[in-house]
Simulated scan of single mutants.
Amino acid sequence: MIWYTALVLAVAAERLAELSVALRNTRWSLERGGIESGRGHYPAMVALHTGLLAGCLAETWSAQRPFVPWYGWAMVAVVAAAQGLRWWCVRTLGHRWNTRVIVVPGLPPVTDGPYRWLRHPNYAAVAAEGLALPLVHGAWATAVVFTLLNAALMAVRIRCEDGALARLVETAART
């Protein structure tokens, strides 16, 4: 279980790196007139993602869940693929990538990278990671709870993001 704890802590460190990028990109966006939407659901998202990491460790350690190699390693591969997709999104969006919903007037929607195939690829990465990370070491209750709560939150988040992007496109069409 020590190596699993190290994996979860590595994911936590990756999340802190994301926040550093997001803070820098927030400043960039706001300096260019960026408009933030969805502030109300953001604290719930932070709590849910923090809860995922804590739940992975708490359930695995308290329930003494075994590591099942054939399944656990497959889930590690899913976690790694999710990280790759997430950072592909970050790289593709550049300064526009953020953990918040901020759109900068005058910038066209991004349609390259993973956005060629998926409208919200970062959320696909979050969903995959949120299911796979707990399952690496048998934390199935954490996987189920996170997945259900994340689905509800993503319904709100995607509606918010799509609305913000639609307003941006609508405003651009009027000018």
Results as ranks from 00 to 15, higher is better:
A166Y: 05
W87E: 00
M1C: 12
L133T: 09
P66E: 13
L53W: 14
G33P: 02
V110I: 15
R32G: 06
L52I: 09
L52N: 07
V46G: 05
A12H: 10
E36G: 09
L107D: 01
L85Q: 01
V21I: 13
C89I: 00
A139N: 03
T171A: 06
I102M: 11
P69V: 10
C56D: 11
M1S: 12
V145H: 03
W70N: 00
L19P: 04
M75A: 13
M1P: 15
V136I: 11
E170M: 04
A47K: 11
F67N: 09
L53R: 12
A54W: 13
E161Q: 10
T111S: 14
G113P: 02
E14D: 12
V136H: 09
A74P: 03
I158T: 00
V90M: 08
G38F: 15
W87R: 04
W3Q: 13
A172V: 08
R32Y: 11
Q83P: 14
A124S: 00
W28V: 13
Y115K: 02
C160Q: 11
G163R: 01
Y71F: 14
T92V: 04
L30Y: 10
A127L: 11
R86S: 01
G113S: 08
P134G: 07
H137Q: 13
A152Y: 07
V101W: 04
W61L: 15
P114E: 06
A63R: 12
W28N: 02
W70S: 03
L165F: 04
G106H: 09
V156E: 08
L7C: 10
F146I: 03
R159Y: 05
V90R: 04
L131W: 15
A164S: 02
A164F: 05
A172W: 07
A6G: 12
A125F: 02
A22D: 09
A12G: 07
M45K: 08
L148V: 08
T147Y: 03
E161S: 07
G84V: 13
Y4P: 10
A80Y: 08
A173C: 06
G40P: 05
E59R: 11
L9K: 01
R24G: 06
V169S: 04
R32I: 08
A132I: 10
D112C: 05
W88L: 01
I35M: 11
G94K: 05
A17W: 10
A6W: 14
V11Q: 00
W3G: 05
H41F: 15
L168V: 02
F146K: 02
S20T: 10
A22W: 06
Y4F: 12
V103Y: 11
P108R: 05
D112I: 01
S20K: 14
H120K: 00
A63G: 11
R32F: 02
E59A: 12
A152D: 01
R96L: 15
N98G: 13
R27P: 04
A77S: 14
C160G: 02
